[in-house]
Computed example of a mutant assay.
Amino acid sequence: MDELKKTYYIDVGNGQISQSSTASTWSFKIQANDEEITQLRELFDQNYSTEWKNFFRAHVPYVQYHYDRENDDYDNTTQQVYGMIYKLGDDEAKSHIESMDILPEQS
């Protein structure tokens, strides 16, 4: 049984999910059920946690960005966020994400 999908407005930059289009700025409009929103929220929370790890790691000058596992984790989670938004988003969201060329090629 499909759960009822609701409209949400997403701002990836600050990890904000809202049902109000006027409450704050947003970049993407999606249709999602409660489970999908929970998954998206968990991805945003995961990136928030990784950002703190990156902040502390940034004070270790001998670790270069491309050798830093936390940066890889952050990049991977960000890609998952955009993948979910692409899957759940309206045509404008899909078009914008395609133009970003952030997702792996779909086969």
Results as ranks from 00 to 15, higher is better:
D2C: 03
D2H: 09
E3K: 09
T7Q: 09
Y8P: 00
Y9A: 05
I10M: 03
D11M: 11
D11N: 15
G13H: 05
N14D: 15
N14P: 07
I17V: 07
Q19K: 12
Q19G: 10
S21W: 13
T22A: 14
S24P: 07
T25E: 14
T25P: 10
W26F: 15
S27F: 09
F28W: 10
K29M: 11
I30D: 07
I30M: 04
A32E: 07
E36Q: 14
E36F: 04
I37R: 01
I37N: 05
T38M: 10
T38Q: 13
Q39P: 07
E42V: 04
F44Y: 09
D45A: 14
D45E: 14
N47W: 07
N47Q: 13
Y48F: 15
T50H: 09
W52T: 14
N54I: 12
R57S: 15
P61L: 08
P61V: 03
Y62T: 10
Y62G: 10
V63Q: 07
V63H: 02
V63T: 09
Q64L: 13
Y67T: 14
Y67P: 02
Y67W: 13
R69A: 14
E70P: 02
N71I: 09
N71M: 10
N76C: 11
T78W: 11
Q80N: 05
V81M: 04
M84G: 04
K87R: 12
L88N: 01
L88S: 00
L88A: 01
D90H: 07
D91N: 12
E92Q: 11
E92D: 13
A93K: 00
S95T: 09
S95C: 05
I97N: 02
E98D: 14
M100I: 01
D101N: 14
I102R: 03
E105W: 06
E105Y: 07
